[in-house]
Computed example of a mutant assay.
Amino acid sequence: MTAPEAPDLHAAVWGAAAELFARNGYPEVTIRAIAARAGTSPALVMKVAGSKEELFHRTATISAPALPDVPVSQLGPALVAELVDRQRRGDLEHLGRAMMLRVNAPDPECVRAKFLGGYVAPLTEVLEGPRPELRAELAVSALLGLATTLRFFESPALLADLDAAEAVYGPIVQQLLDAP
Rank of each mutant, 00 (worst) to 15 (best):
C110R: 09
R58P: 03
P130K: 04
E5K: 14
P65Y: 07
L116W: 12
A49K: 04
A17Y: 00
P171Y: 11
A38I: 05
L67R: 08
I62A: 10
D85F: 05
V70H: 06
V140Y: 02
M99I: 15
L75G: 06
E154A: 09
A12K: 01
K47V: 15
A139G: 08
L44S: 06
Q174Y: 01
H94A: 13
Y26A: 04
A147R: 00
D161E: 10
A18P: 08
R112Q: 11
R131L: 10
T2N: 08
M46Y: 13
T30W: 02
L144Y: 13
G76W: 01
L9V: 09
P171A: 13
P180W: 01
A136R: 03
L116C: 11
P106H: 01
W14Q: 08
T124Y: 03
I31H: 02
E5Y: 10
L127A: 02
A139W: 00
T59R: 01
T148I: 12
A121S: 13
D178Y: 07
H57M: 06
H57D: 07
S73A: 15
E93V: 14
E53V: 02
A98Y: 00
L79E: 03
L55M: 09
V80S: 00
G170L: 00
P106C: 00
A81M: 05
A81H: 02
A121N: 15
A43T: 15
V126G: 03
R88T: 03
E54L: 12
T2S: 12
L144P: 06
T124Q: 13
G25K: 02
L101Q: 04
L176S: 02
A60I: 09
E53W: 03
G90D: 04
E53K: 01
V13Q: 00
P171L: 13
A35T: 07
P130F: 03
T124I: 08
L55C: 09
A66E: 15
E133N: 01
P65D: 14
A157G: 10
G76E: 02
V72C: 01
D91Y: 09
E166M: 06
M46R: 12
Y169H: 08
G129I: 01
S141G: 14
L20A: 14
R97H: 10
A35F: 08
E109F: 10
Y26V: 00
E109T: 12
R102C: 01
S41E: 00
F115Q: 03
L144W: 13
Y119K: 04
V103K: 05
A22R: 02
T61P: 07
L176T: 06
L150W: 02
V45D: 07
T149N: 05
V84E: 01
H10G: 06
A64I: 12
M99G: 08
